[in-house]
Simulated scan of single mutants.
Amino acid sequence: MSRVAKKPITLPKGVEITSNANGITVKGPKGTLATHALPGASVSIENGVANIAVAEGADDKFGGTLRALLANMVKGVSDGYERKLELVGVGYRASMAGKSLNIALGFSHPVVFDAPEGISIETPSQTEILIKGSDKQRVGEVAAKIRSFRPPEPYKGKGVRYSGEKITLKEAKKA
């Protein structure tokens, strides 16, 4: 069995894992997440600790994958995930209008992005966007989608970037 699958997952207070033939469901204070069952891997819960077991002769990689997915789901329904984006550029601003994010990115029109179900978007300041949710994958997808509207360009560094992202700037052409 893989080393990742051997690590137990401690369940915080208020988090429940239920497993059946269709898949695995994790319930917690921030919502409910579900995943499909992986072949040869099963989950057992004892005293608030979830352990992954891989069937004899089954592929080890499914045990490690299932453990990583479950650990992310447990963290998501208990604490949640968040991703922070920064707008860098003159006139680049973001604001919320209901569930829609309005972003001015130097185009002739504002970019309007509707938050998908289960994801909340906040704008603490005009140049910051905070994406929160319980599903790690969906939070990352939404952040990548917003970043794709105007990714950072390599000469001045203007655009939408992840918080703390380092952009390597190129030297301008010399005449």
Rank of each mutant, 00 (worst) to 15 (best):
A5W: 05
K6F: 06
I9F: 04
T10Q: 14
L11P: 03
P12Q: 07
P12E: 07
G14Y: 06
V15Y: 03
S19I: 11
N22G: 06
I24K: 04
T25S: 09
T25D: 03
K27T: 14
G31Y: 01
T32S: 12
A34Q: 13
A34G: 13
A34D: 08
A34M: 12
T35I: 07
H36E: 09
A37P: 03
P39S: 15
G40F: 02
S42A: 14
S42L: 11
S44T: 15
N47V: 04
A50M: 01
N51Y: 08
I52C: 00
A53N: 12
A55P: 00
G57P: 02
G57N: 14
D59A: 10
D60C: 04
K61T: 13
G63D: 01
G64F: 03
L69E: 05
A71S: 15
N72H: 12
G76F: 00
G76A: 07
V77S: 02
V77W: 03
V77G: 03
D79F: 08
G80R: 01
E82S: 13
R83H: 09
L85R: 04
V88Y: 10
G89T: 01
Y92N: 11
Y92P: 00
R93C: 07
A94Q: 02
G98I: 14
L101H: 01
N102H: 15
A104C: 08
L105P: 02
G106D: 07
A115N: 08
P116G: 04
I121L: 13
I121D: 04
I121F: 05
E122S: 14
Q126G: 15
Q126A: 15
T127H: 10
E128H: 10
E128C: 08
K132E: 02
V139E: 01
G140K: 07
E141D: 11
E141I: 15
K145G: 07
S148P: 00
F149R: 10
F149M: 09
R150Y: 06
P151V: 06
P152M: 07
P152N: 03
E153F: 05
P154M: 10
Y155G: 05
G157F: 06
K158Q: 13
G159A: 11
R161T: 15
Y162S: 06
Y162V: 00
S163I: 10
E165M: 10
E165Y: 11
K166T: 15
I167C: 04
L169D: 09
L169H: 07
K174P: 05
